Simulated assay, not measured.
Amino acid sequence: MKKLLPSIVAVSLLALTACNSNKDPEVVSSVSEDPQAAEIANRAPVELPPSIKAEKSMRCQPGNALFFVTFFNGDKQALVRTEKTGPATKLTAVTAGDPLTGEGWTLTGTPTSAKITQPGKGEFTCKG
Rank of each mutant, 00 (worst) to 15 (best):
K115Y: 02
L14H: 07
E55G: 01
T95V: 14
T112L: 06
P49V: 13
T89Q: 13
D24L: 08
F67Y: 12
I52D: 11
P45S: 05
S30W: 15
F72G: 03
T106D: 07
T89N: 14
S29A: 09
T110M: 01
T85Y: 10
V69A: 03
K53I: 06
T112G: 09
K23Q: 14
E55C: 02
T70V: 13
T92P: 14
V11Q: 05
A114H: 00
P99A: 07
L48T: 14
P50K: 12
K53D: 12
A96V: 09
K115L: 01
E55Q: 06
V94A: 14
G74D: 10
T89W: 07
R59D: 14
G74I: 13
E26P: 04
L107T: 01
K115I: 02
R43C: 05
T92C: 14
K76G: 07
P49T: 12
D75H: 03
D75Q: 07
L107M: 08
V31P: 07
T112A: 11
S113T: 10
A18R: 03
L66I: 12
P25M: 00
S32P: 09
S32D: 11
G63E: 10
V80H: 04
T112V: 09
Q77T: 03
I116D: 03
P111K: 01
K23S: 15
A15R: 09
E83M: 09
V11A: 13
K53G: 12
V80P: 03
N42V: 05
T108M: 10
C19L: 10
K53Y: 12
C19H: 11
K90L: 03
A114Q: 01
Q77E: 08
A96D: 11
T95D: 13
F67L: 07
S30K: 13
A78V: 01
P87N: 13
A15C: 11
R59E: 13
T117H: 06
E33P: 08
T17D: 08
A65L: 02
K56R: 11
E39V: 03
P99M: 05
V46M: 01
G102H: 06
A41L: 13
N73A: 11
S113F: 12
V69I: 08
F67C: 01
V28L: 07
S29P: 09
K53M: 13
G102L: 05
K115H: 03
G63V: 02
K84M: 00
E26H: 10
P49L: 12
T82S: 05
S113G: 06
L107I: 06
L13Y: 02
G86W: 09
P25D: 01
T112R: 12
A18C: 04
A65K: 08
D98G: 04
K56S: 12
F71D: 05
P25G: 02
K90G: 00
Q61K: 06
G109D: 02
A78Y: 00
R43N: 06
N42R: 09
T70F: 04
D34K: 05
V69Y: 00
I116E: 06
I52Y: 07
S12E: 06
S29R: 11
N73D: 15
E55H: 02
C60T: 04
I52R: 12
S51T: 13
K23C: 11
V94W: 08
T85E: 08
M58H: 00
T110S: 07
A44Q: 14
I40E: 02
V31W: 13
F71R: 03
P87C: 09
